[in-house]
């Protein structure tokens, strides 16, 4: 009996070893299939929770609705003016770029996604989005919210995508301080979700003009993140341990602890690949036809 147990235990250890050494493509396919299978449950759970939260918020905020409505109307008028101005500036910008022969730097289409989960093992700081390759999401793409950059896509299955957040120590972003024009790499601090600052920028020359409150934007170097996305603001600048450089601590513009939505910056190629993949997927009619007896 004991011997049989050991044989079974060894067999499972062997299975674990085989899984461990599966080729990357097979492993990705297996993980993707499991993720796709469980994502409707996660999405349902999240929608249920959000519904509950919004109901409570609605009940609590009924009294403030009139005031809020007026404030929002004022904001709409202000924002419409801003949009008109921005449109004119974009037209001018486009014209000047054409005259100078520049390529447009950020031709991405934004894919709106809902956050449906987090890293189940808790070793990395990630969130899961409810859209994947079939919607045009590809790996190594920037993910933003209306407030600013939140991270990049790392593992993409047909219907889900995992986003490595800015706060994760393995997430590195090429950045530029907007005011002084100083370039550098922003590295996650591995902080608790929602805790600030979330990342730091090392090797800033002593002479560079970097101050608390400065805006930090993506520099566009490195290829993953398009140029000009807001990362956050500098909250502290300190001399590095060696004393040769300075280090800036950055608070992200988006609150990484309360993410509900995200936009993935997809390229035209991603969208074309998604269209091809969607066409290749068998429809229900095809499946019924395949199942029919000859």
């Amino acid at each position: 009996m004991k011997k049989r147990r050991w044989i079974m235990l060894s067999a499972l250890a062997l299975v674990a070893l085989v899984l461990f050494n599966l080729p990357e493509a097979t492993s990705t396919r297996v993980k993707g299939a499991v993720r796709d299978g469980i994502s409707p449950l996660q999405a349902a759970w999240h929608r249920g929770l959000r519904g509950l939260r919004e109901t409570f918020r609605y009940i609590r905020g009924l009294g403030d609705l009139a005031l809020e409505n007026r404030a929002l109307s004022e904001e709409i008028v202000y924002l419409r003016g801003q949009v008109r101005m921005a449109q004119e500036l974009a037209r001018d910008n486009q014209l000047l770029r054409e005259q100078l022969g520049f390529q447009q730097r950020f031709p991405a289409t934004l894919i709106s996604c809902e956050v449906i989960g987090r890293d189940s093992a808790g070793w990395w700081q990630t969130v899961r989005l409810d859209k994947g390759a079939l919607a045009g999401v590809a790996a190594e793409r920037a993910v933003i919210t209306t407030d600013g950059l939140i991270g990049r896509t790392v593992a993409v299955s047909d219907r889900t995508a995992d986003v490595l957040l800015l706060a994760d120590p393995s997430c590195k972003v090429a950045v530029r301080v907007a005011r002084g024009g100083v370039f550098g790499i922003c590295t996650g601090l591995g902080n608790k979700p929602g805790e600030q600052p979330v990342c730091r920028m090392d090797y800033i020359p002593q002479t560079a003009s970097v101050e608390e409150g400065d805006e930090v934007l993506t520099s566009g170097l490195g290829g993953v993140f398009p140029k000009g996305l807001l990362v956050g603001h500098i909250v502290r600048v300190e001399p590095s341990e060696s004393g040769l450089y300075r280090t800036a601590w950055i608070k992200s513009a988006a609150d990484l602890g309360k993410l509900e939505y995200g936009f993935v910056a997809a390229t035209e190629t991603d969208l074309a690949n998604a269209r091809r993949a969607a066409e290749a997927q068998p429809t229900l009619d095809d499946r019924v036809a395949e199942d029919e007896w000859p």
């Binding site: 079974m8 235990l9 499972l12 250890a13 299975v15 674990a16 070893l17 085989v18 899984l19 461990f20 050494n21 599966l22 492993s27 297996v30 993980k31 993707g32 499991v34 993720r35 469980i38 989960g117 890293d119 189940s120 093992a121 808790g122 070793w123 990395w124 990630t126 899961r128 790392v154 593992a155 995992d162 490595l164």
Partner: peptide, 28 residues
């Protein structure tokens, strides 16, 4: 127990960035 360790391990690894098989070993 063995079956639970296998399925739970594959599930946990699939829902995170951990390489497939790692959680199976940890659960075992």
């Amino acid at each position: 127990f063995l079956l639970a360790a296998l399925i739970a391990g594959v599930l946990e690894d699939s829902l995170s960035l951990v390489p497939l098989g790692s959680s199976v070993a940890a659960f075992l």
